[in-house]
Design a binder for these strands. Structure first.
Lengths: 354, 354
DNA sequence: ATGAAAGCGCTAACAT
DNA sequence: ATGTTAGCGCTTTCAT
């Protein structure tokens, strides 16, 4: 009777898995040889190679990851921490990350913190405990300390979209200022002057930069910024909804609004529809972030498109580079945005522009 | 000089982490005692307890997961395999899963297969190699073999939304047939007879069940099913778009369409808008799956809402139960859908119904 | 109540 | 070229 017969060992795992030992026994070689063959280290006679392969296949051998990880001191898992899993922008980013990491053999530990700094801290601690090989994240800013611990541990990291000052790591962002400036300049060129902005919290660089672009557009046109039309939400749908409500309650209503994120745009649209106002006749809208269904909105949405998937891909590539060479110099990638003119701004009456 | 001073060890990890040994040394106890204290096993004098806690805190000790996993023969990671990460329905499911698992201390290894059976197989193998403690998945149906291997390994599993026949596991689905029947009956009650359906591939139980509901509605009304108005897409936006195009090219156009998934609905809307037709005047639309922005679509969408997040939560709870007791009987949860009438079906002229 | 030591499965020195 | 063995960090007997 073969030695690999006694199988069960602990109650938790129903069946104990095959180990190198059993493969070695069956192939009539040492465990070292098995390891060498299976890791492709070379320097093994082809006859033995065959026997090892055959034995492994016959036993349906799968190396134990935990053991391998323990040995190696690292694993094949990359943590991805995002602020809001319901936000299509971050999903697209994750999509790009996944696309690149998957081909490199890495798995993706996804953590969401729902825009809550407390949960962010918890998730971060959990990711660190899990010992992820790398981390890609879009942070709020509160738990900078937790992020520093990651840096101190020497874990490769890349920040996407949102960045934290003082953290010396790779970043991938978009040119938020220029995107916002273009959007608002477009509205100004259409004759609008009372242009509101519904923005996220200024504690985030994305919101600050978009705010800067908004103001720059007025300065470029020699106009003053209508400070009473500036609103800050939380980058979520409800925030956009409420901000829009207060704008519509203004004595002198804005004639246009720049909504500085996808979910806030949707909230704002909801508020406008609820007030039975027509877009763009009563109020023009330009959003930030494109969405696959933007042409099916009421009306088709003019928006500043971010290359979300490419942001993810770029970050993943940077991370892989750093995983390979931890001491390479930090890089700061800034991708471009693109204004997609549809009909919510009033520049055209209908139909999608490709 | 304290014993925990010599830190660096291997090149890969910049700084070696603190281990039980160092904590034990600092606390002046054995590693066994440290382990006992930190795992809350009890039976340790309170004086020592304090010293261990203090030492651990002072050194900022984090147990090494890989080592713990190796010992335990399992980890704290649950694999989540979904067909399409860009599909908001699955994202909501993931959201519910995450909500429940997170509180139980599990992390979420997310894998997406983009509706490709090949990638599904690869991802499944990777998840198995990673040795996830459990698996929640929405499958296509091709690699049933790979799924069986999981079952054979004794890994707790739960299927969501899409199920594979012959797999003896927990499942969480919704009443697709009843949802579809209600939607189509509603259209019939509004006077429509030429009602098309844009469905997913019949290899999926979800599509089959929705097809059944569609046909049932006609039978209930004593009408015959308009077979020439049945289309099958791929449950994605492009599929919905093309199917709608062919429907609009029919000699006698349908007066209404039931789109059997969220992305296909968006594709269909796109096609209708491109043809400059009015909804619901020229053609009425009822979709499947609600979306946060459904009220901001052109026009507000009447749809069959699935409790997506609750599907995820339920599956996660089932998985936790099974993780705790692997031999509990299998359960099949079926959640209810709800028809949300807005204006795309023509029953009302506008505004959201709450 | 506490410590010593074995061992989870793997890989990489080190021997031969 | 191949085998022997130490040891990754942890938990858990088994002694004391």
């Amino acid at each position: 009777m073969p030695p690999g017969d006694r199988r069960r060992r602990r109650a938790s795992r129903r069946f104990a898995a095959i180990t190198v030992k059993e493969v070695a026994a069956r192939a009539g070689v040492s465990t070292a040889t098995v390891s060498r063959v299976l890791s492709g280290a070379g320097g093994v006679a082809s006859g033995l190679q065959r026997r090892v392969y055959d034995a492994a296949k016959a036993l349906n051998y799968r190396p134990n990851r935990a053991a391998r990880n323990l040995r190696a001191g690292s694993n094949q898992i990359v943590g991805v921490l995002i602020p809001d899993i319901e936000n299509p922008f971050f999903i697209s980013v994750v999509c790009g990350i996944e696309e690149v990491l998957q081909t490199a053999g890495y798995s993706l530990l996804l953590a969401n913190f729902n825009e809550s700094p407390e949960r962010e801290q918890v998730q971060l601690a959990s990711l660190r405990a899990e010992g992820v090989a790398g981390l890609i994240f879009a942070s709020s800013r509160k738990p900078a300390e937790e992020y520093k611990r990651f840096v101190d541990a020497g874990t490769p990291m890349a920040a996407v979209s949102r960045v934290i000052a003082g953290l010396n790591i790779d970043t991938v962002t978009v040119d938020n200022a220029e995107g916002a400036r273009t959007a608002v300049s477009h509205l100004i060129s259409l004759g609008h002057r009372r242009i509101a902005i519904i923005n996220g919290p200024l504690s985030l660089n994305t919101a600050r930069e978009r705010q800067g672009g908004y103001e720059q557009a007025f300065r470029d046109a020699g106009l003053s910024v209508p400070a009473e039309l500036v609103r800050y939400g939380d980058f979520r749908q409800a925030g956009g909804f409420h901000a829009m409500k207060t704008l519509l309650a203004e004595a002198e209503r804005p004639t246009a609004v720049f909504t500085a994120s996808n979910l806030m745009t949707l909230g704002a649209l909801e508020a406008i529809h609820e007030s039975n106002l027509e877009i763009p006749a009563d109020i023009a809208v330009v959003g930030f972030d494109d969405m696959p269904w933007a042409t099916s909105l009421r009306p088709p949405l003019t928006t500043v498109a971010q290359p979300a998937t490419e942001v993810g891909r770029t970050a993943a590539r940077m991370l892989l580079d750093r995983l390979y060479d931890p001491r390479r110099p930090q890089r700061q990638a800034v991708l471009n945005t693109r204004l997609i003119v549809r009909s919510s701004c009033g520049a055209r009456s209908g139909g999608a522009i490709v």
